[in-house]
Design a binder for these strands. Structure first.
Lengths: 316, 316
DNA sequence: GCTATTAGGAAGGTTTCCTTCCTGATAGCC
DNA sequence: GGCTATCAGGAAGGAAACCTTCCTAATAGC
């Protein structure tokens, strides 16, 4: 069996603990010689995880921040805390993070042991009780996770749905994508009985459950699925736009904007690119420019420039 | 170099993606033969990470939930989303999760690449602007993280402090522990100028920075550090208590209660134990009993029994 | 200077690993 | 019912990595 891979993971887990580990102690814990510990540390470093070492009598090893995220090895309660806090964010507590948070939550829930899942449920029902539903009704993050999981497994789904006229129907659909728009979540799915694509508001879905059967993937009705939903729900997603020249490589900007919101990027050379932004307000745009963490010039919109200046003032 | 350990991590990362991976595609991505992929899957299973495999034409491999948390391999934006949401929870958004959330946040921040750290800061300043500070002033989660990191590294810390009388002083302390009590965070530290232990309210700390020098650990002034802070701040941590017999092994209960709040546990046999609970209200106690996810009997407190019944009604 | 620590070279025996062959079993689809 | 995708795993053999036991050297704190 794979002794050394498991030991490396174990070592990573120890090194993520907020303390320093002397080599001999690591050797004792991992049941190997200290030379092997040094070899393992070297291996981790070659894998790109920077292991700091301080010498001297109070020295030891510790994992520090590097270029890439190392695998996170979580305790049970840490995993629960992360799941719960992600659930609140998915519910719309923070602007613009919903979809990314849902992705992270999915990843976590896929591997979260069942007993911890029950703890998360209990805690979330508690927090739902506490939060006074600041704006609009909260979406149940468990329902979102259920839908996302069903879509991932390509399983047919059944649920009861109330359309905007108030009439209730039972649906059988092939779920494809979840889209966050404003304060609402929408499900894009293929309705097998009506034989066409439909968009459902998630907060109107009840009694959702998997119907077991698996389906073959169809081509989606549109490339830009968020735009598709926006058009169908007649909800203007983009209210203001702005053009900005950012002093960074197009790939870098693309990576940093990933998961946040739409917009097009055109390269203007190795270290400059033109970004077309869209958002609900100039303040939003100004804020996301700040997240980019790069120099930029506003090209076309005086309102955006003013908003940027205001944000700058606040930081200063 | 360690080829196979890196490949196993890579494989884990792929399998955590919300989709199914056919063996041949994994082999292509990992640059090995399909037989080796099967061997790797077998290795992961032996390490305790259950890899589901579905056969047939649309089959493939996928990681599912097992007994223990596997290492989480996060994208950049997922890591940012988790850090931001943990920050809001640490600020006191959810009752009882603060300390655990801070632990998880520390673990994440220790290995979070610097560029992502800046994104997290920007997003958090945005959310601070959004949330209308629902109750009391929010604590800056960055400050908490800084203090925790300084304590971890055993470095002297300097900061400006306003005591309750309003007089400002500059302090040099050895930071030891952060304690959450009610809606406030406290730092237990050794004041090197006053040559004694002191307890500081974190929201009164300003201009905190590390003083570089490392110090040798001293024995803490008390075993139960939360109780120590509660006594010193004359803030009753425990207002109500209750005695409960839980139908589960003492170790199980201890593991599930870890990180939540104080209380003593005494074993009454292989599958029963007596738990002494303390909390701010009977509703809190009733709720945490729910999180335990085990049968129980309330022994002494009729108020607690009533609260439990109320929670049960709400669930039903 | 003493003692803790990290760092890493060399040698050698052992183990694991990876590939290339097989053969079977299973699920979905035409 | 066949066809074709998938997972599952045995066998063999050559190559590569691993682990340990020895060294020696450098560094930080008391």
């Amino acid at each position: 069996m794979s002794e050394t891979s498991g030991r490396l993971l174990n070592l990573l887990s120890l090194l993520q603990t907020p303390r320093e580990w002397p080599g001999p102690e690591l050797a004792r814990r991992l049941q190997v010689s200290t030379r092997t510990v040094r070899n393992d540390v070297e291996r981790l470093r070659q894998l790109g995880y920077p292991v700091l070492a301080s010498r001297g009598a109070v020295g030891g090893y510790r994992l520090s921040a590097g270029a890439a995220m190392p695998p996170l090895l979580l305790d049970d309660d840490e995993a629960v805390a992360i799941a719960v806090s992600l659930g609140t964010v998915t519910g719309g507590a923070i602007d613009g993070l919903e979809e990314t948070a849902l992705r992270a939550l999915m990843k976590l829930q896929q591997v979260l042991p069942a007993r911890l899942g029950r703890q998360v449920d209990a805690l979330q029902s508690h927090t739902a009780r506490l939060s006074r539903q600041p704006r609009g009704q909260q979406v149940d993050s468990n329902l979102l996770a259920l839908i996302a999981a069903t879509a991932r497994d390509r399983e047919l789904m059944r649920f009861d749905y109330c359309d905007h006229a108030g009439s209730a129907t039972e649906r059988r659909v092939e779920p494809y994508r979840l889209v966050n728009l404003g304060r609402r979540w929408y499900l894009v799915a293929y309705d097998v009985e009506r034989d066409d694509w439909r968009t459902f508001r998630v907060d109107r879905i009840q009694q959702a459950r998997s119907a077991g059967h698996r389906f073959a993937l169809r081509p989606l009705p549109a490339e830009d699925i968020a735009g598709y939903v926006a058009a169908r729900t007649r909800q203007a997603r983009v209210k203001v736009t702005g053009q900005v020249v950012v002093h960074a490589a197009a790939e870098v900007v693309e990576a940093r904007m990933r998961g946040w919101h739409g917009g097009s990027i055109a390269s203007l050379g190795p270290n400059r690119c033109l970004v077309q932004l869209g958002g609900r307000s100039v303040e939003d745009l100004a804020f996301w420019l700040g997240v980019l963490d790069a120099d930029f010039e506003v090209m076309d919109s005086p309102e955006l420039a003013a908003a940027v200046r205001q944000v700058a003032d606040r930081y200063a």
